[in-house]
């Protein structure tokens, strides 16, 4: 006796757990963010709000977006500028530097054990708990006891060029923000690229070598073009991650506790958009959930627009088409 399940149904049964997870962990929060973004929800009216959740009694308003788009919030422009610097710079490290690093490790380093050791060493910050990573950086950059200034002096950097404080002196503080996030992020791209490079059939590379191609030409004309898919994935993934990431900035610039870290982050010019949203929702006394949701919604929209742009740049449709070459 056999049970017949429609062939059309079968994929949905297998996909169901993942779809449920996407609905509850991504689509529902986004919908909730959209809804909250149009409210004035804060801890002051939270109890009224939950009593009237999704009813006409909830005060829907455009005020949050007016504050953002009509520069009524004095920090919006600055947060936007810093976020653009942050995302572009860290993404360059995560996507481009990681690519160079992967080609170096996976192609130019022929000894597999050395290659593996190098990969593992780059993964250390990712394995390390975030708070430890931030703490180590805090020690490293200490102007008096930290190693960073000593190393830079040893490398010949004049003392006059070194900042009094890596935490508080822009642009040094912004360089620190970029390096801290880029160093940990580069390992992600490196793993993806390295796996992709390792999967390139050696026949193609050997054929190029026989034809007299140099290592650089192989990297430039064979490896990089074959990494389009992983590059699209890494850039898209890292863009979305960076737009919403603030944890290392919070841990390093807010490590003193005791309040006012948002003010310190602003003085250091490291207040990225997501941290600003977080500070509005959870750090201020009044917990402006509505305004923070509106700020986050802008990030979601920017993220979606950027992903569509990446798809266009990388020719997503062509990438999805079946290969024209008979393998």
């Amino acid at each position: 006796m056999a049970l017949k399940i429609s062939r059309k149904m079968l994929p949905w049964i297998f996909l169901a757990p993942m779809l449920m997870m996407i609905i509850f962990s991504w689509i529902a929060p986004v919908l909730l963010t959209v809804y909250l973004g149009f409210t004035d929800l804060s801890s002051k009216n939270f109890l009224d709000f939950i009593r009237n959740f999704f009813t006409e009694n909830v005060h829907l308003t455009l005020e949050n977006f007016e504050k953002i788009f009509f520069a009524k919030d004095p920090y919006v422009v600055e947060a936007l500028t810093i976020t653009a610097i942050y995302v572009v710079s860290v993404l360059s490290i995560n996507a481009i530097f990681a690519l160079v690093l992967s080609i170096a490790i996976a192609y130019f380093v022929r000894n597999e054990i050395v290659s593996m050791l190098l990969r593992v060493s780059w993964l250390i910050p990712r394995i390390m708990p975030g708070i430890i990573y931030a703490l180590v950086w805090n020690w490293f950059i200490d102007p008096k006891y930290g190693l960073l200034n000593t190393l830079l002096k040893f490398a010949g950097v004049p003392e006059a060029l070194l900042p009094e404080s890596w935490l508080l002196s822009p642009p040094y503080s912004q360089i620190l923000m970029i390096v801290v996030n880029g160093y940990v992020g580069a390992s992600f791209g490196m793993i993806i690229y390295t796996a992709a490079i390792k999967s390139i059939p050696t026949d193609i590379i050997n054929a190029a070598l026989v034809d007299g191609a140099s290592d650089f030409q192989i990297a430039r004309h064979i490896i990089v073009p074959l990494l389009k898919w992983p590059m699209l994935f890494v850039i898209s993934w890292q863009t979305l991650s960076l737009l919403s990431s603030y944890e290392y900035i919070l841990m390093i610039w807010g490590s003193g506790g005791g309040g006012g870290y948002a003010g310190i982050a602003r003085a250091a010019k490291v207040m990225v958009w997501s941290l600003y949203s977080y500070s509005k929702a959870f750090a201020a006394e009044e917990h402006l959930y509505g305004y923070a949701s509106a700020l986050s919604l802008i990030l979601v929209i920017v993220g979606v627009v950027l992903i569509i742009t990446y798809f266009k740049i990388f020719g997503f449709r062509r990438l999805m088409e079946p290969s024209r070459i008979e393998v």
Binding site: L168, G260, A284
Partner: peptide, 22 residues
């Protein structure tokens, strides 16, 4: 005051910049 947090943030920004001589 519920907005004391915003006041403190602006204040500490000013203090940071003044002490640094910025």
């Amino acid at each position: 005051h519920p907005k004391w947090g915003a006041y403190k943030d602006a204040w500490i920004t000013a203090i940071t910049k003044v002490e640094k001589g910025e």
